[in-house]
Computed example of a mutant assay.
Amino acid sequence: MTDPVDQQFQIVSGFPEDQRETAAALFWQAFSGKLGKILAPDDKALSLIARLLDSDFAISALDKDGGLIGMAGFKTKDGALVSGSLSDMTTVYGLFGGLWRGIVLDLLEREPEPGLLLMDGIFVSAEARGLGVGTALLNAICSAAVARGCSRVRLDVIDTNLRARALYERSGFVPAGTEETGPFKYIFGFSSATRMEKPLQAA
């Protein structure tokens, strides 16, 4: 999948293996506000993310020099952009640290549904914002969903990420429910997450 946009960037399936560390850093910059209290310290979080990233469930934006400037992930019954086992957690954080982190992260897990492609995160580097990278990645995710026979794309956006929600709404996503975090808001750093979906037309 390639799609040059005004020659500023291109959209590709997966991500270059030599960009794995960059992908982990961008992911952490985007989601440390949500996962920071769970996956801290930063060095261990980056180590875990780099270990778990799966190119088979990624769509990336590369600049003219091939540098990674954005990525969207998705989840199916076969895997996800970032998914690992308890063994991965304990390898990075030790037995106790890996156990409690794994239990807490399970609360955020969402399972794929028939006919629905589940997004597993989207992020754009600060330097590339305003170029249309986020919109292009969302469009590519929707195309990938149609190619897989899905009729909807779903994502979740937390209440503190108003910039992202505005992007999703401009791209045709609509609210489909809200989940409260309750007492876990002190761990996750947000009070609620809104499920947003976009209906798709078959090719």
Score class of each variant (00 low, 15 high):
Arg170Val: 06
Arg154Ser: 14
Glu109Trp: 04
Ser83Cys: 12
Glu21Pro: 00
Ala166Leu: 11
Lys198Gly: 02
Asp106Ser: 10
Leu53Asp: 06
Ala147Phe: 10
Met89Ala: 02
Leu81Asp: 00
Arg129Asp: 03
Arg170Gln: 12
Arg154Leu: 14
Val82Leu: 12
Ala203Gln: 11
Phe57Pro: 03
Leu162Tyr: 14
Leu108Asn: 09
Gln7Pro: 01
Pro41Gln: 08
Leu131Ser: 04
Asn139Ile: 03
Trp28Leu: 05
Leu131Arg: 08
Leu107Cys: 12
Ser85Gly: 04
Asp156Ile: 14
Thr76Gln: 07
Ala144Ile: 04
Val153Phe: 11
Met119Pro: 06
Gln19Pro: 00
Ile103Asp: 01
Arg170Gly: 03
Ser55Cys: 14
Asp42Leu: 10
Glu169His: 07
Phe184Arg: 06
Leu68Tyr: 07
Ala61Leu: 09
Glu109Lys: 13
Ile187Asn: 08
Gly79Tyr: 10
Ile141Asn: 04
Leu167Met: 14
Lys185Glu: 15
Glu109Phe: 03
Gly130Thr: 07
Lys37Ala: 07
Gly70Gln: 04
Lys77Trp: 04
Cys142Ala: 13
Ile103Gln: 05
Phe173Cys: 12
Tyr168Gly: 01
Asp88Glu: 08
Lys198Asn: 09
Lys185Ile: 09
Phe123Glu: 06
Pro16Ser: 08
Ser32Asp: 06
Thr91Val: 04
Leu81Glu: 00
Ser143Gly: 15
Gln7Ala: 11
Ala40Cys: 08
Ile141Cys: 10
Lys64Phe: 09
Ala61Lys: 06
Asp3Tyr: 02
Phe190Trp: 15
Leu107Asp: 10
Glu180Gly: 13
Ala80Cys: 09
Thr90Pro: 00
Asn139Asp: 14
Phe190Gln: 12
